[in-house]
Design a protein around this nucleic acid. Structure first.
Lengths: 160, 160
DNA sequence: GGATAAGTTGACGTTTACGTAAACGTTGAC
DNA sequence: GTCAACGTTTACGTAAACGTCAACTTATCC
């Protein structure tokens, strides 16, 4: 009768949530500071409910798509005011669409930068081929970069 | 005989370069602090040579492709040591290639975020269409975003 | 009765690329 | 003579999202 970890009354410690979502205690406390989470207390210790867990999921999802914590907070607040349930959905939708167009813009900027880069690379390669072909960094060097990229940090673009 | 602004002896004031490249004096002085520029002095005033101008161009180009100032500095230092002329080109090339793959990674991250976003949007749109179709934000709202994006800030992605 | 583990609350440190005064000097126009 | 326009230095402020101590309490294991 103490079993069934899925029942809604189940609570979580800070570390349980951290392990589940690969976050740090510091981060969760930080989100709390910022008003994104408000777990209950048991003495001093934080006690996270299912609702808190859901909010954390939303927070992390928001981060993945590049929303700032304050933007995420606004959205979460909407869900709390539940001033209808539909009005907040409409505003969330709007926010998401804005973020989408912003990301599209970022992609274009990146594409522009890539064009400049490839252009510069092409020039350098050409000159080097003429002068010192032996110095041309080739596939071998590249593998190192790719391998380095495979472990550790896949946090390049958005919230690190 | 005082004419011909193109002759290499020509020098520039800080503001001339700022106007030409849409930078601020503060920025140029900052680059100097960081060792990216070392203009001559005429009394207190900075006097930029053609070489300085080229360096500034390289700095800004580096920024556009997302290099940090310290990375840019490394590259510029290479050109100064001119320990051959070819070796530095090889290293620049390597750096550029690394940056290119990093940018490609960023693009993938953005694409991933866009997928999540579009998914969330689709859900919201569906639910809203069922419940309160009148609240669906549509093309009209979108125009505002686009118009807002057209003036002022095209600084979304990289160095702002 | 420690040692260990996990929790807590401050509070300062980090990073990047400048912005923003403050306070002052120089030059040219009127 | 004085006001504007441009230049200078020094130095603190900013934003985001935590990391990293420090110093302490509480619970548990042996």
């Amino acid at each position: 009768m103490l079993a069934d970890l899925r029942r809604p009354e189940r609570t979580f410690t800070i570390r349980q949530l951290c392990n589940e979502f690969k976050a740090t205690p510091r981060a969760l406390r930080f989100y709390e500071d910022k008003g994104l989470l408000t777990p209950a207390r048991e003495g001093l210790n934080r006690v996270y409910s299912h609702k808190d867990r859901v909010r954390l999921q939303l927070i992390l999802r928001g981060k993945r798509v590049g929303l700032s914590l304050s933007e995420i907070r606004e959205l979460l607040d909407l869900y709390d005011e539940n001033d209808d349930g539909a009005a907040q959905m409409a505003r969330s939708l709007k926010k998401f669409r804005e973020r989408a167009t912003a990301l599209e813009q970022q992609r274009e900027d990146i594409d522009g930068a890539l064009i400049e880069l490839r252009d510069a690379c092409a020039r350098l390669e050409k000159r080097l081929a003429e002068i010192r072909p032996d110095l041309l960094p080739r596939a071998a060097d590249y593998d190192q970069v790719l391998r380095a990229r495979l472990d550790g940090h896949q946090d390049a673009a958005l919230g690190k």
